[in-house]
Amino acid sequence: MAELKIADACLTVAGATLVRNASVKITPGELVVLLGPNGAGKTSLLRLALGLLPPDSGHVTLDGVAVSKVVPAERARSIAYLPQTRPLAWPNRVRDIVALGRFAHGVVLGKLRTVDAVAVERALLACDLLALADRNADTLSGGELARVHCARAIAATTPLLLADEPTAALDPLHQHQVLQLLRGFVDDGGGALVVLHDIALAARYADRLVWMKDATVVADGTPAETLSVERMRDIYGVEATINSDGAYPRVSVEGPA
């Protein structure tokens, strides 16, 4: 059981408050989407959660231990991370990139142990990448690359996953594919915290929405509880219509408020 808990955390960098008194909990079995306008502090919250930045006050704990004190490899066996920019330095094989997800398990490329090879194959299968496994990364489309990065995170077989805008610059089909992969990860018993800008997508797939504005978490609850016309106006400054008749709320943004 892995539990990542951000409790009353503040982060100030060079005089600017990036995160103020934020409390968020991520546990397996839940897909949490972090929403908020640009500059609201979503990426900073993710970095806090990962222990890349220690909080100025408050606590960020992984199973009760301060996450910034956890050894990098040990943390990586509990939390997989998909950062916003994922520049690949070399045109590596898809299979190798996915295998790097298991770096903290001691993977040496080209000499995978059975347990690692099995996890890599499973991740490739889950992300529909078997046909591309031996292709070089520079021959892939943006949508295919996004799946490769998802597979990399899934191959890590961590209980938790943090993803920063995994659907950025993807067409609608690939956006849904990525969210379905994350949904599958959660349905298999993982816990995920995902930053998204597409509220409709968030409402469709998330178990819980965490709303941020001006470095503060302003709401935390299920899409049905927290998604409202007023909140869309307050957080994003847009007029939206929301249809709550179906299995999940459908939201469409009409224009600036």
Partner: peptide, 17 residues
């Protein structure tokens, strides 16, 4: 160095010191 292929932030994410 293999991990760094992914970019510095992702490399830290997969557990690189």
């Amino acid at each position: 160095l293999s991990a760094l292929t992914l970019g510095e932030e992702a490399a830290i994410g997969v557990g690189l010191n």
